[in-house]
Design a protein around this nucleic acid. Sequence first.
DNA 1: TCGAAAACGATCATAATCGATCATATTGCA
DNA 2: TGCAATATGATCGATTATGATCGTTTTCGA
Lengths: 273, 273
Amino acid sequence: MHETERHRVILSAVQSKPFASVAELVELTESSEATIRRDIAQLHLQKKLRRVRGGAEALTPAHVTALNGRPFSVNISINIAQKRAIAKAAADLCEDGDTIIINGGTTTFQMVHPLATRRLQILTNSFPIAEHLLNHTKNTVMLPGGTIYREQNIVLSPFENDVIRNFYARRMFMGAQGIGPLGVMEQDPLIIHAEEKLLGQADELVLLVDSEKFSRRSALILCPLARIHTVVTDDGIEDRHAQMLADAGVRLIVAPVARSAKGEEPEAEAAEG
Amino acid sequence: MHETERHRVILSAVQSKPFASVAELVELTESSEATIRRDIAQLHLQKKLRRVRGGAEALTPAHVTALNGRPFSVNISINIAQKRAIAKAAADLCEDGDTIIINGGTTTFQMVHPLATRRLQILTNSFPIAEHLLNHTKNTVMLPGGTIYREQNIVLSPFENDVIRNFYARRMFMGAQGIGPLGVMEQDPLIIHAEEKLLGQADELVLLVDSEKFSRRSALILCPLARIHTVVTDDGIEDRHAQMLADAGVRLIVAPVARSAKGEEPEAEAAEG
DNA sequence: TCGAAAACGATCATAATCGATCATATTGCA
DNA sequence: TGCAATATGATCGATTATGATCGTTTTCGA
């Protein structure tokens, strides 16, 4: 990835939350720590961000207020490494010019950073996603009409929605509360209703779920496994769950999660002195 | 491929994406690196794009325009005192629980501040207004569906819009390019189209125009004077223009402008409702 | 306070990109 | 056709960016 692209991604990451770590940016840009450090130092001199130990932070915590004090902001920080890895792998499925739907959620929100260097047509019912894409990328952003629900930060409408009805997308990306043999599960009937409307407008359904979601259950079934085209999850997925997807004819993408904490060696080290 | 063709391709690539690499452009144009470099250098001199290491980027990358540079934010600072005074007076027309429509514009944008302490139901086609109301107030915010146009920062849709069709508001607030005996004038047919849709859903039309707009003319007529219920303007309005409104049966509210230079007391007009 | 882990800065080898130059191809014109 | 002007592509040394290494500094917890 080139310098200007990296800078774009870094600024995008830093402005969607108070702080972005070097490791995180390494993962996002697929470049080395040294390069990220140099980039941060450069952007710091340009006063585009503030360089702090461990990474970088936004100059003005203004946008942060957008995500503060809401359930959304609580969820957004748990399993963040998994979510980022999953979102990155999902975004890699897209090519410039594609038309996609992104359903609101904390995992799908992480797609905005890898999408910073893209140019897609994106329909989303998530206000934060729309906000970020509009302010930090060149993607075309479309919104369905309706009321903005603060709790979930999505746009909902009880009415039929002409924008949705006239929209066609090759892929729809969404998260979920849980996934099991019966299909994709959600909690809130309102959400189900909104997601169903979007589902009808896309060919391939791509589900973004961290591996814990396979043991999570929820009250309402959104759709059967067969409706899913691809599942993107992290490397914590158990074999039996992978098998369940295989049996249902679902394509599985496992996103490797960068683990900085534990000294877990990936076995490849042979000549160590 | 010839020079002019290549230039077209390069510009198109750069404008549809934040960044285009030399390798990418080589592939696109089926020419050599040297040629692409020469082209980029040339276009750089012509100020059609910015030359950066590894390729080229658009003159105003997305993240820059998002923060400054966009027409919206340029306009927003001119006649700011008048706009604020007018917006304040307009907002004072509302009571908690009201249902209103706010059409996008730099004058109407100023209503967000006086509305911070209110609890209204607000339908707006302006993304910045929605953003601000959502993040800084407790008002219920509704959006029509459609594509977000960066230039004007509003949401537009070519389709019928069920959210709008099912919405009823007592008042609609809007700005305008100009106002004269023939009615309210706008420049852009797209804007006209969007405003007409909203107009149909409100009883009273409240027009927010600074006094200069009475001598401004524009190409397209949105609606006749008779459609206007109330005009809110600043104290620079001339008598003949006030008379024109009176003749058309339009209510006129003159907002006193606080002039900090003269140290003149704004004598806070207490007219509640 | 000490020690381990993480983050950092400096340095170096490698790779990517660039600029200059020259040879070749194309075009326009006599 | 022949010639000049221009555009293009290839080459190569120079410049710059990148990633890995290593010693130092900072942070954090025992």
